[in-house]
Amino acid sequence: MSTHVISNTGVMLGRSIRHVTRSMDTVITVTIMPIAFMLLFRYVFGGAIQAGTANYTNYLMPGIALIAIASGISYTGFRLFNDMQSGIFERFHSMPIARSSVLWGHVLTSVVSNAISVVVIFAVGLLMGFRTSAGVLAWLAVAAILTLFTLSLTWVAMIAGLAASSTDGATAFSYPLVFLPFLSSAFVPTATMPGPVRAFAENQPVTSIVNAIRALFEQQPVGSDIWIALGWCVGILVVAYAFAMRVYRRKIA
């Protein structure tokens, strides 16, 4: 059976990638909305924000990438929910295939489609003046952090997709996640925030991830931020995966 896992998962990945490319609204919201935020912050608010940096585009790139991922994974939940509803999930589970490939197809699609939208966003960022002298290793580290972040949130989306009883339920969980970067160091330094807000901002996952990516691009030492960032991502991943598998086992009996 195990030899089938890779081939089955490949078929499942191909299937849901087609779902992504064939629903233009998915492609558009996943890339256009963060790009709109990027334009807004760079050209409208940017002039008034004292971030203590010469290049504000550089400053906001990590947060914009995280917003793109947080909104992208709501479609992962949506696609899984649709499969559960349409009966195709049951068809797959009654077939002689590796059952795990059904979920992993969705997970990999989420990683691939979010990676594509992040690449598009960085390309737009370059046009808007994003510059870095980061080397290959630093870029790889950024890619690894963003992939891990995507994986963690994808498993959160899997819980929603498996457990939801309506389309709204399968997607609404991502709204607060999209909002998290605004309450972090993504757009303004946390030092400017009033006490309780600052305390929240400095102790939530987005700030450490943003700070770590920023440091990598600026070739500064990443300090403890990267370990806190990795800790958050791995922690969310483990907890979400365990919950998702529990819901999954209850669903398929």
């Binding site: 078929v11 349409s86 195709i88 009654s94």
Partner: peptide, 27 residues
């Protein structure tokens, strides 16, 4: 093989793609 109560087909794929998908899954 199970044909459930609600046609469990992938509406976003074409008819041919649905069949090819199942054929690939069943090796």
């Amino acid at each position: 093989s199970l044909t459930g109560q609600f046609a469990a087909v992938d509406a976003i794929l074409t008819g041919r793609e649905n069949l090819v998908m199942v054929a690939r899954l069943r090796q």
